[in-house]
């Protein structure tokens, strides 16, 4: 298992030398989940950093906040931000670089390899623990999760508790980094799109029944877009916050603003919201699975994004999040793109 000690020392040095503004990493959580995002400004706080398979959060989301914050600073502190990333998270940085949302110099990347494991799924873990409280989770040499609870240790093969996205992961070590901890070993993935194929194999009405039931649950808390490092639009299609108003703007003009999606959490409106989000992430989603993890109603949102990831791969041979110089999927084309669906 990757060790955090070397990264801690690196982080301490960075802070001592004032080379980074602050460091985004993982610290101890307090709500029953062992890990939580941690922001460190002082070198002496570096010891609060942790790394274990409960470090599920994609911290790259906080770079979006940082960019906004920096925009308001006068004068802006141009030092980079230190950030801990797993393989999937690092691909999110690649996309932000590709889209020129951030520059390489804005981040100092402390990469950690998941090696042959990954992160645990909260629901699977809760089921395994059956009410017991987990104190620590580690990966042993034989690639098993070792759960330490008050009542003793439990050993589980990683596959049993890994998050779905880890089971289909194609980047279990960071693809971009300044320092790296852990080995660049790959875990074999037999079916990178197995979960999507399962749904595709259903007849059309069953597919609809499945998605309708899921999307009907949505309460539009927008946690999915809030947790997503790619959802950085200043104004989302469901909001209306940036309406430019001048002294001459009439009430009719304000009221006549197009509402693409109504505020009611009605099934049709929820569905349009999730379709828009999925298509907007087409060729951009790096499958960190955060949207699905944060959903309080457990809607399998990842399966929507994964579908478009699959199509991008199969139709256009496009894989995002490995090469920052790649043009964006939908602002590029090839002469021989498939068009058998066009009359």
């Amino acid at each position: 298992m990757a060790k955090i000690d070397t990264l801690k020392e690196e982080a301490r040095k960075l802070l001592q030398d004032g080379k980074v503004k602050y460091i985004i990493g993982y610290g101890a959580g307090s709500n029953g989940w062992p890990a939580a995002p941690l922001f460190i400004k002082q070198p002496e706080d570096v010891d609060k950093l942790i790394w274990d398979p409960t470090c599920i959060h994609n911290l790259v989301r906080f770079l979006v906040d940082e960019k906004r914050r920096k925009g308001k600073e006068k004068p802006p502190d141009k030092r980079p931000v230190g950030i801990f990333v797993k393989g999937c998270d690092s691909r999110a940085i690649v996309v932000l670089l590709q889209e020129k949302f951030i520059e390489r110099g804005d981040v100092y990347i402390l990469g950690i390899s998941c090696e042959k494991a990954g992160v645990v799924d909260d629901a699977k873990l809760a089921k395994k623990l059956a009410g017991k409280k987990v104190i620590t989770i580690e990966v042993d040499d034989e690639n098993r999760f070792v759960l330490t609870t008050a009542g003793g240790k439990i050993e589980v093969p990683v596959e049993e508790l890994l998050a779905e996205r880890c089971l289909e992961c194609r980047a279990n070590f960071p693809v971009i980094y300044d320092v790296l901890s852990g080995e660049k070993t790959k875990r074999a993935v037999d079916k990178p799109f197995g979960s999507v194929e399962k749904i595709e194999s259903l007849p059309v009405e069953e597919r609809w029944a499945f998605w309708k039931e899921q999307i009907d649950k949505c309460i539009r808390c927008y946690a999915c877009r809030s947790a997503c490092p790619m959802c950085y639009c200043d104004e989302c299609v469901v909001d209306s916050i940036q309406l430019a108003v001048s002294a001459d703007t009439t009430a009719d003009e304000k009221a006549g603003r197009i509402k693409w999606i109504q505020r009611s959490a009605a099934p049709s409106e929820n569905m349009i919201y999730h379709l828009v989000r999925a298509i907007h992430l087409g060729g951009r989603c790096i499958d960190c699975g955060e949207c699905e993890r944060v959903c309080p109603l457990d809607i399998p949102l990842r399966l929507l994004n994964k579908k478009l990831e699959k199509e991008a791969k199969e139709l256009f041979d496009y894989e995002v999040g490995f090469d920052p110089d790649l043009p964006a999927l939908i602002s590029s084309f090839r002469d021989d793109d498939p068009q058998d669906f066009i009359r």
Binding site: V196, I199, E200, V204, E205, E206, R207, W208, A209, F210, W211, K212, M271, L275, A278, I279, G282, G283, L304, K307, L308, E311, A312, L315, F316, L329, I330, S331, S332, F333, D337, P338, Q339, F341, I342
Partner: peptide, 17 residues
Amino acid sequence: YARRRLNLVKQLLEYIG
């Protein structure tokens, strides 16, 4: 561009049923 983008839309719409 339309050909590429709308192919994705088509796939997505079929996928959700």
